[in-house]
Design a protein around this nucleic acid. Sequence first.
RNA 1: GGAGGAAUGGCAGAGCGGUUGAUUGCAGCAGUCUUGAAAACUGCCGUACUGAGAGGUACCGGGGGUUCGAAUCCCUCUUCCUCCGCCA
Length: 425
Amino acid sequence: MLQVNFIRANKERVLAGLKKRNAKEDLFQAIESILELDEARKSLKTEMDMVNADRNRLSAEIGGLMKQGKKDEAEQFRSQVAGLKDRSAEIEDQLKATEDQLTQQLYTIPNIPHESVPEGITPEDNEIFRPGPEPLPDLGEGSLPHWELAAKYKVFDLELGVKLTGAGFPVYRGKGAKLERALINFFLDEASAAGYEEIIPPLMVNEDSARGTGQLPDKEAQMYHVTLDNLYLIPTAEVPVTNIYRDEILDVAALPIKMTAYTPCFRREAGSYGAHVRGLNRVHQFDKIEIVQIVRPDKSYETLMEMLEHVAGLLNKLGLPFRILRLCGGDMGFTSALTFDFEVWSAAQKRWLEVSSVSNFETYQSNRMKMRFREGKDMHLVHTLNGSALALARIVASIMENNQSPEGIVIPEVLRKYTGFNLID
RNA sequence: GGAGGAAUGGCAGAGCGGUUGAUUGCAGCAGUCUUGAAAACUGCCGUACUGAGAGGUACCGGGGGUUCGAAUCCCUCUUCCUCCGCCA
């Protein structure tokens, strides 16, 4: 979330940011409300501190008198302290209520978009940061979408997933399963080579972690919730991996911190429907390799480009036709300041499929997580970034569609040492 | 799941009702000495809120309670350790 002091000092910027995000009117009002609540908070706090200071002073005097054996004099002070105590408790209740309201309001304010974020409301308004190849590959007549290829070559089975679990839980089989595993290993090896520490995190997180990265309270309905133990299935490795450094004060020399993790990701995808969810286009469980960086604020945009190039490198090595979009204000995630989406061209479906999202959250997550670094005497919030490198299900779909041939699905060169075969037939 | 024990600053480890935000050691930072380094010595060394500042307030796993006063006593939750049971 944003810091109140930042909002106060940069009110115009915050309001302009909300406008760019096409925010509703009530968010603009929330900004006013936040500033007022913070003023109220401050004066209540000052009042309580003064009452407590009096109480502490009197208590110390009572202690001194008791030591000297002057019990009668001590008695006089007791009733005074009792009164102060009641007063303090009263103010504390008000203070707590004010702070709760303030926090609730702050949770409703999204991150402020970076200046380079284009104006716009819908995905059509996203800026093409790096265009796809010209002309786009054309597989000609008879090319099949991946779900038909899956049936033909038995790569994955969605109906079996329905039997075992429900819609949107694919079962990969045989060479399909091996291709999946090959991609995981390839992506992890590439991340390691780029200096990312490999992490195997828990697949369930507690409430604090979900709040830290911003899934709570904003996106609660998107997560599977294990109510009996109050745990959430992770929608992305970003959640457990970024939270590793929650509530930590890092030494500046420790930065940047680069971590990667492969995990299955679980998403309820409530509200999705239609042809766009066919096959592997949108599923409830998919594998993803995530890269996360924790960096100095002055380096974060440089880092964002570095991560962008890492992901672009992966797609180039796989030989998939892709483009990069800079998301517009209206299409950007709640917690992000700047997001680049990677889309792979599906010639068979004649549409672009999102396979990666690389974002800079600036201090939005680190403020929630109290993730800071010390440099000399000064302490600052770090910037956090993450990106998919890459999301598997759609990559598998893309490889199947783009690499289909009369003989079968051709495995990209770089994956062959991982799969042990060149063709799915 | 059952029975005990524990939780204090970056780490180790005192304190167990009254100037204790907290002794001490290590680590860290600054300095003296030195050609340099080591050693020795001196000083500094938690976080948050608040205040122009001096300062004030809060925090000794979380929450609640007793008391004029709690790191210290009580209740509760959580986590960790030991033993038993179960188990990939």
